[in-house]
Design a protein around this nucleic acid. Structure first.
Length: 262
DNA sequence: AGGTATGTTAATTG
DNA sequence: GCAATTAACATACC
């Protein structure tokens, strides 16, 4: 799940549950997810402090621990947050933050493709990761500027975290479907008007998905997202959907509505 | 069993 | 230098 709308949903979830309670203990189960810190180091940074505010940039979530610094979470392909008291039966979470009130915030990443870090300055961390501007807080002018002079497929560019931060395989498909662009369209083929349409679709899709908590079953009927498979039909023309390989991923699209230019 | 999966990165190829 | 592809990472699901 975790693309921009999913991480935005995690942020709101954390905001409404885990803030302003003293941390009693921290347990790191997945040592290999830690970046530039150790389990005991992270414990020292968080113990006794409160989580006070959160910030999202692209697919990264930053959680502030008082005035000490920020916990950094990346959710990989299958990560999520869970807040509560019930004893988890199946499996130890990759990271558990236990609060003094008996509740805890669990970071669960079954495939362990995520990342846990700690930084004094999210801006520095973002720069060090070479992340582009967040896809949702980007002006059209900046968007256009980043696209000009580039070549290669528009899908690859949308998914490139250094170009824009936050869009992955599923939402790039949705944005291109709404824009009626063939995924492998070269950036140099896009005229000003095309770029503007693309930008507007990007904003609309990411806002709509965030508002609906990134749940496929809550998406508008006009969306491709819940239909990214060979059994479904295009919500616009009713035709068969098709897939192709681009940037090492499977792109789903409608060959009728998203025609290749030329 | 084998293929696929919402992500990132290093190595390789064009 | 840039863009695209492949393999690798670790696990779950069909």
């Amino acid at each position: 799940m975790p693309e921009l709308p999913d991480v935005e949903t995690f942020k709101r979830y954390a905001d409404s549950t885990a803030l302003n309670q003293p941390i009693a203990s921290v347990h790191v189960e997945a040592n290999d997810l830690l970046e530039q810190t150790s389990p005991s180091g992270l414990g020292r940074q968080l113990h006794g402090r409160c989580l006070t505010t959160t910030r999202r940039h692209g697919k990264f979530l930053f959680v502030r621990a008082d005035d000490d610094g920020w916990l950094v979470l990346h959710f990989g392909m299958t990560g999520r947050l869970e807040y509560g008291t019930s004893t988890s039966p199946d499996r130890t979470p990759e990271l558990r933050i236990q609060f003094e009130n008996g509740y805890r915030l669990d970071y669960i990443a079954p495939r362990r493709l995520g990342r846990i870090a700690f930084t004094k300055d999210p801006g520095e961390y973002i720069a060090a990761q070479d992340l582009g501007p967040d896809a949702l807080t980007l002006s059209f002018e900046a968007f256009q500027e980043r696209a000009t002079g580039k070549r290669g497929s528009v899908k690859c560019w949308l998914m490139n975290q250094s170009a824009l931060a936050g869009i992955g395989n599923v939402y790039s498909d949705e944005i291109l479907f709404q824009t009626r662009l063939y995924p492998k369209t070269d950036l140099r083929q896009l005229e000003h008007e095309d770029l503007h349409t693309l930008y507007r679709a990007l904003q609309e899709v990411l806002h709509t998905a965030s508002r609906n908590q990134a749940r496929p079953d809550h998406m508008p009927d006009t969306y491709l997202l819940p239909r990214r498979n060979s059994r479904s039909r295009c919500p616009r023309c009713g035709g068969r959907l098709d897939s192709l390989k681009a940037c090492g991923r499977t792109a789903w699209y409608c060959p009728q509505c998203q025609r290749r230019k030329n």
